[in-house]
């Protein structure tokens, strides 16, 4: 993956100093580990009434291990500027958000229509074509027939396979 684009190692004075993503990652892991130890684990794991080893022992040990690894990663990357690998770019984040929102939209629509109709497959047959059109849009550059094929043939094939073939209900 290295060298395919995204952030590059800063080598010359003309290039602005970029943030080392592994350094930030190390700090995030350390912070997350500490958050687990001091807030999430005490709130979510109840040690009261335990007779052997407390239930929080394994989560706390693993959280401390995560803190240690985060610290190691931070220290290892303190003197390195820029990211030697491909890393995570703004385009990646935007694309990930668009993809997740597309799936989330399809799920909400499927859930909502399914609950409203109260019959199996209504939610699926309404939301799946919409979802597939969105997923195909995410790809970019697909010809028109693909939108038609994905929106009509694919949901029908899944409907036939799951309902008529396996007798499994969808929303």
């Amino acid at each position: 993956m290295a060298g395919k684009g995204g952030t590059k190692r800063t080598t010359g004075p003309t290039r602005p100093v970029e943030l080392n993503q592994d350094l930030v990652l190390g700090l995030v892991i350390t912070g997350f580990g500490l958050l687990l130890i001091f807030w999430i684990i005490p709130a979510q794991v109840n040690d009261g009434g335990s007779f052997g080893l407390p239930p929080s022992l394994a989560p706390k040990s693993l959280a401390w291990l995560m803190v240690a690894m985060g610290a190691v990663l931070t220290v290892q990357n303190l003197k390195i500027h820029g990211d030697p690998g491909r890393g995570l770019t703004r385009v990646d984040v935007a694309y990930l958000a668009a993809s997740v929102l597309s799936v989330a939209f399809m799920l909400v629509l499927m859930q909502w229509v399914g609950d409203w109709a109260g019959r199996p497959y209504v939610g699926f047959l309404v939301a799946a074509p919409a979802g597939l059109v969105l997923f195909t849009l995410l790809h970019t550059g697909a010809p028109l027939w693909v939108y038609l094929f994905n929106a009509v043939a694919a949901p029908l094939a899944i409907y036939i396979g799951f309902w008529w073939g396996l007798r499994l209900p969808l929303p």
């Binding site: 990652l25 892991i29 239930p55 693993l62 995560m66 990663l73 290892q76």
Partner: peptide, 29 residues
């Protein structure tokens, strides 16, 4: 990176603790 590898394994093992504790039956996460 070894640090990232151990973190990933530890994070996976941490998520494995989600659910009812096998000894005390109290819920975790």
């Amino acid at each position: 990176s070894l640090a990232k590898g151990i973190f990933a394994a530890a994070f996976g093992a941490l998520l494995a603790t989600v659910g009812v504790d096998p000894e005390t039956a109290s819920p975790r996460f």
